[in-house]
Simulated scan of single mutants.
Amino acid sequence: MLAGKRIGAWALSACLCASAVWGAADYAREKKWADEILPGIVVGEPVTLTDAGGRSFLGLYTEARGAKGAVVVVHGMGVHPDWGLVGVLRSQLADLGYTTLSVQMPVLAAEAKPEAYEKLFPEAAERLAAAVAYLQAKGYRKIALVSHSMGARMSGYYLVNHGNPPVAAWVAIGHSGQFKEPQNLKLPVLDLYGEADFPQVLEAAPRRAAALERIAGSAQVAVKGADHFFNGQESALLAEVRAFLDRTLASSR
């Protein structure tokens, strides 16, 4: 189930023939992303993960020497696990002492609207569960989620609908809305966004802050001058994520 060797023909091609458990995602687009990015991967290694429904998907695993913990990195809508700021997080958090596993989340066609992605949340949750299980099998006990945009919404769904999963901390970057069922979040949360983020992120920030007041160890941070993608503000992004992970994982069991 959990292979750690470099992918050759790439297992996603088999996924296209397999029967779908959820049946809504664009698996051909996933394969296209994999075919495009795998030849250029120089940090970390591709691994094959398998969800509870038997569907394989791509992960990019980067091991940190003497790791302080492990992080599942979750990209946003319609992209891939080495895209933009997600690629920065997965590679540079490893340099900062955290093993990372950046995972391919289910995608829709390029023209799909954000609201259409909600039907993919159950499958997304199964993928995150598989990613956490992979890291546990590697011996990690302190595991965090670091997720961006739509990936943050998918992560929130996983955390409140997957039976109190073994995750010690969550960094939600550019969360486009409010936390669903915050009373069921049982871990410290960092709500991190840019001062010049998308309107829907900014408008819901007070409601997210109010929810976090009831979750021990949580915080909300707006990075000055940053947009939704933290263009030019990658160092500030990493500094905030690192500080939160260092603080929360050090105090977790």
Rank of each mutant, 00 (worst) to 15 (best):
Leu2Thr: 14
Gly8Ser: 11
Val21Arg: 11
Gly23Ser: 11
Tyr27Leu: 12
Lys31His: 10
Ala34Met: 06
Gly40Arg: 07
Ile41His: 04
Thr48Leu: 11
Gly54Asn: 05
Arg55Glu: 12
Thr62Glu: 03
Thr62Asp: 13
Glu63Leu: 08
Gly69Val: 02
Ala70Gln: 08
Gly78Trp: 13
Ser91Gly: 03
Ser91Ala: 12
Ser91Asp: 03
Leu93Asp: 05
Ala94Val: 01
Asp95Pro: 00
Tyr98Lys: 03
Pro106Cys: 05
Val107Gly: 02
Lys113Pro: 01
Ala125Arg: 02
Leu128His: 00
Ala133Tyr: 03
Tyr134Arg: 09
Ala137Gly: 12
Gly139Glu: 10
Arg141Asp: 03
Ala144Arg: 00
Val146Thr: 08
Met150Gln: 12
Met154Val: 00
Leu159Ala: 04
Val160Cys: 05
Gly163His: 13
Pro166Asp: 15
Ala168Gln: 14
Val171Asp: 03
Ala172Arg: 08
Phe179Ser: 02
Glu181Asp: 15
Glu181Ile: 06
Gln183Ser: 15
Lys186Arg: 14
Lys186Gly: 01
Leu187Pro: 05
Asp191Gln: 10
Leu192Arg: 06
Gly194Pro: 04
Ala196Glu: 15
Ala205His: 13
Ile215Leu: 13
Gly217His: 12
Asp227Gln: 08
Gly232Leu: 08
Gln233Trp: 07
Glu234Leu: 12
Ser235Ile: 13
Arg242Tyr: 06
